[in-house]
Amino acid sequence: MSEQKIKDEINKILSSPTDGTVTVLSCLLLVQDEIGYIPDEAVEEIASFLKTSINEVWGVATFYTNFRFTPPCKNILEVCWGPTCHLKGAPDLISGFLDKLNLEEEGDSKDKDVSVRYNTCLGACQQAPVISINHSLRGNVKVSEISNIIDFVAD
């Protein structure tokens, strides 16, 4: 997308009717929900939309680890590392997924197919360990399934 196009898009998003209080955070969330990340232009547009400074927006955006500043990969894989999942074997799952995708830490795979993110709780503890693939949950995941899951996602 060209810079102008992104700007127009963001302005459209920002001026869409919203309920409740409009804050820097609510604007950032809107943008991230719509285009999946916070581009540079969004910081500037939100600042001028709310008559505040770019630094203020940037400060809020970097405070929350859920905001990302680069386009996300095609698929988003979230691995729960909450206490229940942890006890039921999440650490092995995490290292398994990371090995499979050649990653050291949570992040994007080199081929930009899968973004791996840790999640504090996916809210399905009775099925721990839980993962979410593109926002759909999958429970009782076993280490042996990792290869299949990745191959399935990457297709």
Binding site: V43, N55, E56, V57, F63
Partner: peptide, 18 residues
């Protein structure tokens, strides 16, 4: 508002937008 806190907790530092 030319400076801001960047990031949070142990990694928090001072800087400018991006």
């Amino acid at each position: 508002n030319a400076l801001t806190f960047i990031s949070r907790s142990g990694r928090s530092l001072i800087g400018t937008s991006n």
